[in-house]
Design a protein around this nucleic acid. Structure first.
Length: 444
DNA sequence: GTAGGGTTAG
């Protein structure tokens, strides 16, 4: 076993398998135990396919495949989404151990929940009738969460009500978080209430996720209501709680309220960070208050929070909004000199602004610098896998060298929304009405 | 299986 582990650590699964095959030919004692141990080890190393090969060796020699081996291979295969292969193994597992074997029941539940959550629940209730030790499938939930089916997980929990197994706080939290990300913050709140009744206590991270989910759906009022109720459940808002709310206030143009909230946060002993100040800078720039944004920038530097790519890009955006290309260029060169270049959108604003003024040669120079920026390259190349033709980067380089700046900008405008989707909360699952437009903060 | 998992940007 030590040798096998050593070979596997060298990431040579073929080496492990070769060794197994040689041991087989030598007719070594305890061969079946070695194979079962190897299966367990390979699964821990997240190599269920290699483990399956060892399993085949056991089958071929009509040796005992332990329940644990079946379980760990199947779990690995299901986690990897290798459904077709797991189907074959489940058949043998059932033949060898019978349906009442707890590990098999768990795997079946995972497997069924992947295909059809209702049949999983049906199976579960049947197993309960047989007085089996099967509990509600936490593993089924994990499968659902891993495959992003948070609604199904939600319905599973809410539907099971009193037949719930002991679930840990984080298990619930992942569902809550998933629901928020999918745009179901109200369902997430329902789940929170339910969980509270079960006596499970969430920490602030979960509530941060819900607050963010509500904001993303445009439910700022509800988000603040939740924020205000945190005290009642003895939870102290974290810096991220404040950051989330501040960012959303800034986005909506409630900069005065955002500032009040920032003051409140500082009073609680938090220091603020670059990200929080970026929210302000971006908000001020978006609403045409460039001077305010620049004041925040100064303030930031006094507080030793270093500006970053986002900061620089936001300020450039602010200058461009005003049509002040000298200001934008000056700011760009100054920060480039300090080693803080803008990111994709910062460059794009700069180039668009220059083009709008007919300053094509300067736009071309900036485009050239943009295409040399590491972060821009990484971003652009991250979509290339889906495009079969030439890479976007090479197209842009070509257009730049040709001097076809307008065409290059067209390409950039096309790819930009892929990286920075806008208007998040107008998706198909709009749970509650957007209330931000009539919203004012009333804590003072 | 018996640790760790889950949160903020245009």
């Amino acid at each position: 076993m030590t040798l096998i582990k050593a070979i596997a650590k060298a990431e040579s699964m073929e080496g492990v398998l070769n060794l197994i095959f040689r041991l087989e030919n030598l007719g070594v004692d305890m061969y079946d135990t070695i194979c079962n141990d190897t299966i367990s080890f390979l699964c821990k190393q997240k190599c269920p396919l290699a483990a399956t090969e060892v399993y085949m060796v056991l089958r071929k020699n009509q040796l005992l495949v332990t329940c644990k081996s079946y379980y760990s291979i199947l779990k690995g295969l299901i986690d990897d989404g290798k459904i077709w292969l797991s189907q074959l193994l489940i058949g043998s597992f059932m033949k060898d151990y019978g349906i009442a074997e707890p590990k098999l029941s768990n795997i079946l539940l995972c497997y069924l929940s992947l295909k059809d959550i209702n049949s999983a629940l049906c199976f579960l209730s049947k197993m309960k009738d047989n007085d089996s030790s099967v509990t509600f499938p936490v593993c089924a939930l994990k499968v659902l969460m891993k495959t992003g089916r948070f609604l199904a997980a939600y319905e599973l929990v809410m539907g099971a009500k009193h037949n719930l197994p002991v679930m840990e706080m984080v298990d619930y939290s992942i569902i809550v978080d998933g629901l928020c990300k999918e745009g179901y913050p109200v369902k997430a709140l329902n789940l929170c209430a339910f969980v509270k009744k079960m006596g499970v206590v969430f920490n602030i991270i979960t509530y941060n996720s819900v607050i963010n989910g509500l904001c993303r759906q445009g439910c700022l009022v509800e988000a603040f209501r939740l924020f205000d109720s945190l005290e009642k459940i003895n939870l102290i808002p974290s810096e991220i709680t404040y950051a989330t709310l501040i960012d959303n206030l800034c986005k909506e143009g409630y900069l005065v309220d955002a500032k009040k909230l920032l003051e409140r946060m500082l009073l609680k002993g938090y220091n603020g960070n670059t990200r929080i100040y970026n929210s302000f800078i971006h908000g001020y720039c978006k609403f045409g208050q460039l001077e305010e944004a620049l004041m925040i920038l100064d303030h930031m530097e006094i507080k030793y929070h270093d500006p970053d790519e986002f900061t620089v890009s936001s300020v450039i955006y602010g200058f461009c909004q005003k049509g002040d290309m000298e200001g934008a260029l000056g700011f760009y060169f100054e920060h480039k000199g300090k080693g803080i270049p803008p990111d994709f959108l910062g460059f794009l604003h700069l180039i668009r602004g220059l083009c709008a003024k007919g300053r094509m040669e300067e736009a071309r120079n900036i485009l050239r610098e943009m295409l040399q920026s590491q972060s821009v390259k990484e971003l652009i190349n991250s979509v290339n896998t889906e495009v079969e033709t030439e890479s976007i980067e090479s197209i842009l380089v070509f257009l730049c060298e040709q001097g076809s700046i307008k065409e290059a900008v067209t390409v950039l405008n096309e790819v930009s929304p892929v990286f920075f989707p806008v208007e998040k909360w107008f998706g198909p699952f709009h749970e509650s009405q957007k209330t931000a437009a009539t919203f004012r903060v009333e804590w003072f």
